[in-house]
């Protein structure tokens, strides 16, 4: 499995760098508005189904959402794998790498289905 991860390393690095950039730019605003301001009643529109559906179902909205879900998953997976390596987890790298990238792959596929269903 480690050999396969090494072969895929250039693709993973591409997704990792894109994921850090896209995730870093898009997710703080989502966390602030949808996770804090909306539930606390500061931004009631953020919890409105009609408002959020109108934004999300727009073609541009679907594209942004797909990028905001799929790419940061790869960025985060690669980061967590390397934190594990830094703690001396080289022996279990194949397992941890597969687990991290497996979640990213599943999440990316689910994201494609999720935005297509809107």
């Amino acid at each position: 499995m480690r050999r396969m991860l090494l072969v895929l390393e250039p693709v993973i690095w591409l997704l990792f760098s894109a994921g850090m950039m896209v995730g870093g730019l898009l997710l703080p605003a989502w966390a602030l508005v949808m996770g804090v301001a909306g539930p606390l009643g500061i931004a009631p529109a953020a919890t409105s189904y009609d408002h959020v559906y109108a934004l999300a179902s727009h073609p541009l909205g679907r594209l942004v959402l797909l990028a905001a879900i799929a790419l940061p998953l790869w960025g985060g997976a690669h980061h967590l794998r390397h934190v594990w390596l830094d703690f001396g987890g080289l022996r279990s790298d194949g397992l941890v790498g597969t687990l991290c990238y497996g979640v990213a792959l599943l999440g990316s596929l689910a994201a494609i289905v999720a935005v297509a269903r809107l």
């Binding site: 994921g19 850090m20 995730g23 997710l27 989502w30 966390a31 949808m34 996770g35 959020v52 999300a56 959402l65 905001a68 879900i69 799929a70 940061p72 998953l73 960025g75 985060g76 997976a77 690669h78 980061h79 967590l80 934190v83 979640v103 990213a104 999440g107 689910a110 994201a111 999720a114 935005v115 269903r117 809107l118």
Partner: peptide, 16 residues
């Protein structure tokens, strides 16, 4: 990386 993955999964949950 933990926060990137967690928040992405929460966005996915909301979109789903």
């Amino acid at each position: 990386g933990f926060f990137l993955m967690s928040v992405s999964l929460l966005v996915l949950r909301a979109v789903w």
